[in-house]
Design a protein around this nucleic acid. Structure first.
Length: 577
RNA sequence: GCGGCUGUAGUCUAGUCUGGUUAGGACUUGGGCCUUCCAAGCCUACGACCCGGGUUCAAAUCCCGGCAGCCGCACCA
């Protein structure tokens, strides 16, 4: 029995996860988080916020999940987030049209239009590779869910395929919020949608999933990190592209060396790898099932210059990507800039202003004005944009420079212009920031946490969740179901809730059964009320992982449990006192 | 999207081939008894034939279609 099966069975049984729309047979690629699953997922997301918003000083925004077509045209998703498909009329097999052409003709046809691909298929008489049947015309299978915006349904919209775009689009506002200075980071947590053809990998390939993404905008000339020293000695398990090609093993290396040896392309990117590593560790996922795999050149998206996937090992699916950390360069901002005609650049001030001397062509207005009359102002404007050296060169060759402007040609002659050397002070320049993007798949991470926190000892199922992630903080049990013990238990349960702890009372079955249920949902602590409680007002508190028990006064229970859950104290500290 | 296999309570399963009593059992769960620390025992209750059509006097059972799951193929910016 695979661990995957045990975990998924328990997740279903105990209300963590189940497939959606079950009473209508379900739909592949959709999952519900049940009562405990929803808390777990939220706790993971809040820990993530704690890392990136509190720890790194990034702020969170929330943008719509439905996006207009233009925005996704700019991002490249309308044109490139789809696959050209063709179907065999005989055996009904479906193929990637570009792949099938490449196989038979050897020609690279990626990016060609469907019409063109259809023509190639008929011109080259390409047939179904399986049965030799005729192929249909090529259509695009776009992985985005399409919808219509508004009652008249004139405007095409799509469910967003990633949360990142929602950060790039209001970039000007965000830059203003951060008062114009790089670097800064913005995060977004939310749903994203991809209409996968045939998802069959449970929680691993979902059609609707939750991302937590940070977009960190940096000066391309400075990809250092101010706190890199804090992570310099952090050891990462890296699996660089060249070692993958040689079919070698991942290497353990400090962050500092990874940067020095150029294994990872920048300090900023390396810092992000370390941050992700620390995050995964706090989720209770052991180091030996985590590795950082660099994208091969062939699999890297066209806009990225370096990309590392954080992978977690699973018995069912092998190594799965749970986080992608990429240097997206200036691709997105540049593209949105072009499509929207908004200037999405950032002004970078030089350390010291630079004095530049340059030649300018200065018109002699006494002759210039009368000659060109009302056209004179716009010609002067055009002159400022023209390279003076080009004019000089034209004068040297033919004594005339033809200035093309709005379809007209204006002849400039040497007597109209004089050339002057001008000193100018330049204080900085406008650049497109580069984007470093850690992108977390929260559902896959939640799955990984359940998978790797699950343990079986003898006949015990234990979900060894870190105390601060456990959905239920503490369970309260009367040792036996006597009215007076149950009454005290109820009060203790209520006192825990007043402390803000999710606490449950369980009076069903025997004490052993209650502990077993408690362990299976990962509740870290259980408080048991027995006969001695009635005599001296003490109760026992039991730790899930060790099954050890310590006796404490009832009055200390809420504070103690709180400190245990927040990891301010360890259970062993209680044993010593 | 294609092919093969599969679909009975929350879970595991008997029954399906060969149509015919009230669809049987175990575990789980709820209630009760008992019980003073890790799924004990006893009593009791709840709970299922994936959906739709067809054949038939009669369908969990046979036939067709759909949906879902598993395996293989394909797909995965």
């Amino acid at each position: 029995m695979m661990k995957n099966e045990d975990v998924m069975n328990i997740a279903k049984k105990r209300g963590f996860l189940w497939s959606s729309f079950e009473i209508y047979s379900g739909v592949a690629g959709f999952f519900d988080y049940g009562p405990l699953g929803a808390i777990l997922k939220n706790k993971i997301m809040n820990k993530w916020r704690n890392f990136y918003i509190v720890g790194e000083g990034f702020y969170e925004i929330e943008s719509p999940t439905i996006m207009p077509e233009e925005a996704l045209q700019a991002s490249g998703h309308v044109d490139h987030f789809n696959d050209p498909m063709t179907e065999c009329k005989e055996c009904l097999e479906v193929f990637r049209a570009d792949h099938i052409i490449k196989e038979t003709t050897g020609e690279e046809v990626e990016g060609l239009e469907n019409q063109k691909l259809t023509e190639i298929i008929s011109a080259e008489e390409i047939r179904c590779p399986r049965c030799g049947g005729h192929l249909t015309h090529v259509w695009s299978y776009n992985l985005m869910f399409q919808t219509l915006i508004g009652a008249k349904g004139k405007k095409t919209g799509y469910m967003r395929p990633e949360t990142a775009q929602g950060i790039f689009i209001p970039f000007k506002r965000l830059l203003r919020f951060y008062r114009g200075k790089l670097p800064f980071g913005v995060v977004q947590l939310g749903k994203a949608y991809r209409n996968e053809i045939s998802p069959r990998q449970g929680m691993i390939r979902l059609r609707e999933f939750t991302q937590a993404e940070a977009e960190i905008f940096v000066n391309p000339a400075d990809k250092s990190h101010p706190h890199f020293q804090d992570v310099a000695d952090h050891v990462l398990t890296l699996y660089p592209a060249d070692i993958q090609e040689e079919e070698g093993e991942p290497v353990k290396i400090t962050a500092k060396k990874a940067v020095q040896q150029g294994v990872v392309s920048s300090e900023m990117l390396t810092y992000q790898l370390c941050l992700a590593d620390k995050f995964m560790a706090e989720l209770g996922i052991p180091v030996d099932v985590i590795r950082f795999r660099q994208h091969l050149k062939t699999e890297m998206a066209h806009y990225a210059i370096d990309c590392w996937d954080v992978e977690v090992y699973t018995d069912r699916y092998g190594w799965i990507e749970v986080i992608g950390i990429a240097d997206r360069t200036d691709f997105d901002l540049k593209s949105h800039s072009e499509y929207s005609s908004e200037d999405l650049r950032v002004f970078i001030e030089y350390d010291e202003p630079r004095n530049i001397t340059k030649t300018v062509a200065k018109p002699d207005m006494k002759k210039f004005g009368p000659l060109f009359k009302k056209d004179a102002p716009k010609i002067m404007n055009a002159l400022k944009e023209t390279d003076p050296d080009a004019i000089k060169l034209a004068f040297a060759e033919s004594n005339v420079y033809d200035l093309q402007l709005e379809g007209e040609t204006y002849q400039l002659t040497p007597d109209l212009l004089s050339f002057e050397e001008v000193e100018e002070t330049v204080r900085g320049e406008k650049i497109y920031p580069h984007v470093i993007e850690p992108s977390y798949g929260i559902d896959r991470i939640t799955y990984s946490v359940l998978l790797h926190c699950f343990k079986q000892e003898d006949d015990r199922n234990i979900l060894c969740l870190p105390a601060d992630l456990a959905p239920v903080g503490a369970n309260v049990f009367p040792l036996v179901n006597k009215d007076d013990l149950v009454l005290v238990s109820t009060h203790i349960r209520d006192d825990l809730r007043i402390q803000g702890i999710i606490a449950e009372l369980d009076t069903s079955g025997t004490i052993g059964r209650r502990y077993a249920r408690s362990d299976e949902i990962g509740t870290p602590f259980a408080v048991t009320i027995d006969h001695q409680t009635l005599e001296d007002k003490t109760v026992t508190i039991r730790e899930r992982d060790t099954q050890k028990q310590v006796r404490l006064p009832v009055t200390k229970i809420p504070d103690t449990v709180n400190e245990l859950l927040n990891k301010k104290i360890n259970f062993s500290d209680l044993e010593d006192t």
